[in-house]
Design a binder for these strands. Structure first.
Lengths: 217, 217
DNA sequence: CCCGTTTGTGTACAGTTGTGCACTTTATAC
DNA sequence: GTATAAAGTGCACAACTGTACACAAACGGG
């Protein structure tokens, strides 16, 4: 009855709460519903904090979401930039890039689950933010492809189309991989193999392509 | 004489309520949140019915969702089957199929918006149901492709991989098209053009492909 | 026409939600 | 040290949620 049960008072979470909230949200998204249907209260409960403490760090849930999104993409952008540093694409490099990327996804599972569910299921601003991020990858890939010797005669629009195809395909397989059980190594490996083959096949098609339409349309 | 309890007893919506509920849910999904975050009460309110009337037609919200899903796919399956009746794929036919499909999407916008948001954002059973449906399309496409003369030497696994690539790409562009404003004709036409080009490019790659690995892996 | 079955209504209730406010605790700067 | 700002707590409350229950209206077959 005394309120001084020693184990009762939570330990030094001072200052660590913000991250705890973000982790709690990610956890809940990973093993339950999409972020859009999480309540402020369950997030705080999971984080071991009283509901009103939330407001010390975020004005509302959607702010948490945006922060989560930023955290998800920041390191990814950097990783992609490093991958792009390498030599001109060839078959060996395709395999390497895919491995790097899929490994990264696996090591950041909860973040990608979050993003995957928000891509089309989230709020309008959230969806736009994610698609802007993806379009950025597409453009960068298009720039890389422009340096292909056999692509000099392909116009900018078609380059964008090709890059979109590559990125969309990888995104789709990534989402499918996230549906697999976390420790289904075999299944995840299959996804990797498939992604590599698909990209290789696309490059076969690219090599064959001619932009026979004049610059416009 | 009839009982004269004044405003008691509603208008002649008798029997039409079930469909009204489904339409209401679709409406709300189209212009607001994903289905998973809809409440039973707002659906019934939108349908112009008292909350408890819901249970006369569905045991709970997820049952409504499954029904909606069925409604969404039933006619689509039939349409796809008709498209498949046509002659062997060639470039002219690719364009035709894409036009047919995208037109169908446009004419059933709310249904596709629903499916799109549920694909990765919905409940586990919902996601599984949708992906099963998609895998069905993939398999049928793979069967069609198997009849290509120049694909006789491609093994089953690679055929599946190619069909997956085509379907994933079209799905991705469909989702992107659904993000556009309903009457953005130009934007939607761009998506169609892009889809057609992407599929054509994939077929270029397919024509080049050799399954040089033995049957297994 | 009457009577049983569906379908829709109204009321009720306990649980959960977001958030305002006053408070205590902790950290930091002087 | 002590003052001040930041971070966390507790309580309150109105709004909304799903659903149980009893009743009223509409329908359809005899």
């Amino acid at each position: 009855m005394s309120r001084e049960t020693p184990t009762r008072g939570r330990r030094p979470k001072r200052g660590r709460t913000r991250q705890a909230l973000m982790d709690a949200a990610l956890d809940l998204v990973a093993k339950k519903a999409p972020f859009s249907s999480l309540s402020l209260r369950e997030v705080t409960k999971r984080a071991g904090v009283v509901p009103t403490a939330f407001y010390r760090h975020f004005p509302d849930m959607s702010a948490l979401g945006l922060t989560l999104l930023d955290e998800s993409f920041r390191t990814l952008r950097q990783m992609m930039r490093e991958v792009r540093q390498q030599e001109l694409p060839n078959e060996r490099m395709i395999r390497g890039s895919m491995e790097t990327f899929f490994n990264y996804v696996r090591n950041n599972r909860t973040h990608f689950l979050f993003v995957s569910k928000e891509l089309y299921g989230g709020s309008a601003t959230m969806r736009q933010a994610i698609r802007r991020e993806i379009r950025l990858f597409v453009s960068e890939l298009a720039m890389d492809m422009a340096r292909f010797p056999f692509l000099v005669r392909v116009n900018a629009e078609d380059l964008q189309m090709m890059a979109t195809l590559v990125v969309n395909s990888v995104v789709a397989l990534t989402q499918e991989m996230l549906e697999l059980d976390e420790d289904d190594e075999a299944g995840q490996h299959e996804m990797l193999i498939m992604a590599e083959k698909q990209v290789r096949l696309i490059y076969f098609g690219v090599a064959q392509w001619r932009s026979d339409t004049p610059p416009r349309t």
